[in-house]
Each structure stands twice: as structure tokens, then as C-alpha cells.
Design a protein around this nucleic acid. Sequence first.
RNA 1: GGUCAGGUAGCCAAGUGGUUGAAGGCAUCAGACUGCAAAUCUGAUUUUCGUCGUGGGUUCAAAUCCCACUCUGACCUCCA
Length: 490
Amino acid sequence: MTLTLYNTLTRRKETFTPLEPGKVKMYCCGVTVYDYCHLGHARSYIVWDMVRRYLLWRGYQVRYVQNFTDIDDKILNKARQEGSSMEAVAEKYIQTYFEDMDRLNIMKADEYPRATHTLDGIKRLIHELEHKGFAYPAAGDVYYTVGNFSDYGKLSGRNLADMQAGASGRVEVEDPEAAKKKHPFDFALWKAAKPGEPAWESPWGAGRPGWHIECSAMVRQCLGETIDIHVGGADLVFPHHENEIAQSEAVTGKSLASYWLHNGMVNVDGEKMSKSLGNFTTIRQLLDAPNAPEPMAVRLFVMQANYRKPIDFTAEAMAAAQNSWNTLKEGLLFGYEYGKQLGWDVGQASCLSSSPVPSPQEQRFQEAMDDDFNSPGALAVLFEIAKELGKEGNILVHEGKTKTPPTQLEAQWKTLVSLANVLGLSVQPETQTNESTDGLSDAEIDDLIQQRQAARKAKNFAEGDRIRDQLKAAGITLIDTPEGTRWHRN
RNA sequence: GGUCAGGUAGCCAAGUGGUUGAAGGCAUCAGACUGCAAAUCUGAUUUUCGUCGUGGGUUCAAAUCCCACUCUGACCUCCA
């Protein structure tokens, strides 16, 4: 089986062939750190985390690099608002980025380059561009000469003439840079320092780098002149990624990346979630709200759709994803709950590895994921196993034993856990049982259940139901079975 | 206006010519179970004509290929 992926550059699915067998160099455009991440960011990084994990599972050695843009007007504005500095604002939101991503179980990148740490590489690149005739200085700024790069527009499928025609019909915004540019689509590589703003010395005078140049410099510095996979949000295709190509390829004469992958946007009421529209929900707002979905439900929400298609964020959809996760979670917890009873050595989930011979489920999983990361198809396999284990678990609870051989259940469970892990979906069995929520201890709950049982035995159902309601209000759900009452925290 | 991506059953979402009489999830309803519930299980909402945005066409055969139309979103400005 071969892995195929949809390449924005060619607008079709292609077989994946790394530059170097068995190794993948992957670069992801990260965030500009001036605010908390919202669900659009969450989707993007969940998707690329999934891709990375899948490549690892497929046996590739993956080097994954993701940047932080820590020089930017929006960061400066924020700093002014808060009476703070650009560094302080950037540092704060880099930390909150990590906090949010940790909760979503997103693996750490191998390297996190920052614009402020890449100035030498940026200046060198601009210098080379200037030397090769792709850049020109203008009153302290330096601009890229779009017209000199013949491939300009190859990624986004546009040409300069069309864009100018289109732009003419749009409202012209007062742009102080416009007067300095030779061509309206030329873009800034270096911006002259403004009074009171952070600036770095350069051959063109004090100033700071433009946005696009940092990624070109970082890719080159961290991964080399050509990488395998370059990823980011679909809104970055133009102009950001187009400009990256223009910058890097003009200098190296080699293609920047073999494959360009882009994730679809998160929509709210049919419109893209974005800062400017004000229709965004931050990751922490969502996860910290009352009745918040679990982080894994958010992952599931994202992965239940194809990564390239837009998804509509609604409270209903999120609630549905939480319910879906509950189903999956039950299957994932099966081994922790019943493994001992079935006589198998559970060991540590992290040590689980799939058996050398792929099971039919693993094959179907791989088939789906090999097809441009068809995570909805892959999840169908997980749900089938989880449902089956859930059923078996129910039988075990009610009858104390099952007809299915324990070794078979063990294999099923291990398959489920390992495949779920490929999608970054995992459960923490310890915290499932030892949560000390809302003051009620396990003993107190057991005691209340005893009281309820006594009341029911005495046909005092009003009292029995009262206790049930009381526990429900405290977030405890009771499950009555012929053998007794089980309970769990919601 | 230009470029690109899509419109699948109550909702989300796979499926890109016959084994799909549409995977999987969610939801709702009914039955079993229960003192009543919850959880769970079974079935239905999706089985013969007419289901896959609409209308044509190709084919022995189409959700799946072709043409036209229509609707939606993204990008063309910072944006994951």
C-alpha cells in the first residue's frame, strides 16, 4: 500500500515519495503570538499532529519544525495596549500556546524557531535575493520583485495579470508602502524602523523583517533547501506560501517543498472563524466552560471531517463529538477495567505495540489513512472495535464472564489503543477513577448508594430516587445492574 | 470580477463506475430490561419503484464519468 496525499501545488493526490527514503522533513507555519489560540488554530495543529503521528506509525523518521512569529504589528499593538513590550507579549502567548496544545495532546515539534532568533538567516536571504536581482531597497524598506520570478502564482494557481484585474474592482486601501513598490504585488522583505519600535541593524538600515521571509529563512536553517512536506492553513496559500516559494526558490534554484498540504477552515454559521469577524472561541474558553467538552472530543470533532474541508463549529456539533468520544473512550478503557478480570497483563498503555502481522482492522485503518489522511474512514474502524469491546464489557458486568476468548479481546483492545494513539486519542485510566470532584469522596458515594439500595429494598422509592438525583446533581451517574450498582463521574 | 474547493439520508460524514439495496458517528422514536429511570441490547427513521444540489448525456450498469445550471465557502488585505 502506498501513501497518497493531496498536493496543493499540483491540485491532485500524489504518491508520497520522500527525498530521502524513510525520512520526512516537515515544516508547519505556526502562530503569530499576540493572543490566545482559537479553534481554527486548534484544528490546524490537531490535523498536522495527526499527519505527523501517522507518518511515524508508517515507519518514517519525521523531523517536524514549527515556527513562532514573534515580530509583528499585531504583537506591537498588543504591547502598546498593555503597556508591555513585544518580547513580553510574545513570551506570554508562546507559553499559552504550549499549554493549550498540551491539553489537546499535540506532540512537541522538534524545533520551534522564532523570527527574533533567525535574523542572521533572514538578512542573509535578503542579501542573496538582492544580489540575484529579486529585491530592491526603497527608502529603508526592501521589496521582493514579484515580476522577476517566473513561477510566481504556481502554488495558488493565479497570475499577476488576473490578480491585477481582480484588484481593480476592489476598494483601494490607503497603503503607505504602495508608493515605494515598483509593482503592487511586490512585498516587503525588510521594513524600515519606525520610532519607538523594536529594530535590528542591517545593511539596509535599522528595521525588522517582513512576515514571509522568516519562514523561508527558518526552513532553510532548520531543514535545508528542499523539504518533503510544507503545511499550514488554507488561508496561507496566498500570499504567504506563494511568497515563501518565490523567496526560497529564487535563491536556491531548487523547489522549496515537494508537497504542500493545507487544512480547511473552521467556520461559524457558515463563515470562517477569525479575529477580524470576532466570531472566534479560544481553546481555553471552550475547554474551561461549564459542561466543556473533553480535549479528546475536540480532537475527534476535528478528525471526523476530512482535513481539507471546512467544518462548521456549533455547540451541537461539539456535544455530538463529546458523545462520540464517550463511546470510543469506553472501548479504550476496556483493558484497564476488565483486563485484570480477564487474566491478562495490562502493563503500560504506552508500551503497547501493534502485533507484527497487521490485523484486518489495522489494514483498513491504514488503507483509509493512506488515502490522503482519510481520518473519518479510519475512525470508523476504531468505532467498530470500541463498540464491540463496549458490548463485551457490558456482558462482563452483567454475567461476570464472556464467551469471547480473553486473548482475542486483548488483541482487539491493543489494536484499538494503538490505532487511537496514531490519531492522538488517548485516555488516562488513573485520572478516570481518582478524580476528587465536587467534594464527594468514593467512600461517601458508596455510602449513599448503600442507603439508596436499602430504601429501594424497603420499597421507599421516593427516598431512593432522591439519593439518585442528589448524586446526579453532584455529577455522579449510577448504573444499576442485576449484580448491584456501579457508578461513574461524568 | 478572477482562482480554487465543495453540495450525500433528521444532523455530521465516508464512499469516485457493478460485492454501496450509501461505512462510521450523533440524534430521535419503539420494544426488551427496570419499581420508574439511567446504562445496555434489538429494531426503526435509510430495503424492491424515485434517495446522493438541479437538468440533460455516456454506459449493460453512475452518488461515482461528461456537459450545462444552481447554491455555499475559501483566497485575491493580516489570518491556522
